[in-house]
Amino acid sequence: MDEMTLLGNVVDQTPLPTATDLAPARQRLMAALTAEQPRKSRKRLILSGATVVGLAAAITGVVAFGGFGVAPPEADAVEFLHRAADVVRELPATPPRPDQFVYTRGETTDGAREAWLSADGEHDGMIRAQGEDTPLPGCKDGRRRVMRGDVDMGMTEPCDVWPAYRRLPTDTAGMRAYLEGTPNDFDILLHFAIQETYVSPQAMAALFEVMADFPGLEIVEDATDGAGRHGVGLTWAQPADQNEVTLVFDQETHVFLGTEDTAVFVHAIVDAVGQRP
């Protein structure tokens, strides 16, 4: 009997596991499947579904369970983030008024994209991508108009208000406590990554300082963002079931450029939907 037959016999003699054997694993998978919203509806709000949510979940996961058998942050990466924090902290704060919009132009895996997001979340915003304008009805007093694409269905539905600007802690300890205390509030993380909301320079600096403590933090040499711009990549220990995210910063200026799948070109405050800075 040769070694291949011997090996094959080992497996042939073992019965396949039954549905009962597999039930716990199936249950874990189903929980993940049902937790994920269909991509279609999500797309209206955020850039590139999988990546960005991956980032949010990853950061939260690390914040929540950080330090589990993972290498400490790499010194170079920590230093880079501290410098990035120092740079951004010096920028002037330009918070929008409640009736204004946060405008961004960027690049995603789906192509170019522009967004006008309501600062207080109560006004109607818009996403322009792939040659289509998708309205984002504002959420006022817990209700918003129901839209299917750009067709107004003539009714309202319950909603959570989703402001593009909210006051966030501007010190490291406060930001850490905020992140740890609100594991399900992905907004800040989500939009920190893609810059479609307004995060004050001081809050952004605090976020970088918190990131500098992430387990497994390391530099990815010569990373490129979603538009192919070269820069310094930063990544950290992320759950295996997430798409791994690398944040890309400009090597010289330390300005955040995007992720490996996304890029931000313009970020500004405007008075109306459709208006560009």
Partner: peptide
């Protein structure tokens, strides 16, 4: 499954028994 995540369950049902046996070995 990209748009309808729950469809992915079919991949599990189809292949999990063999993957599980491989891993167990």
């Amino acid at each position: 499954s990209l748009r309808e995540p729950e469809r992915f369950a079919a991949i599990f049902d189809r292949h999990a028994p063999h993957i599980m046996r491989y891993l167990a070995h």
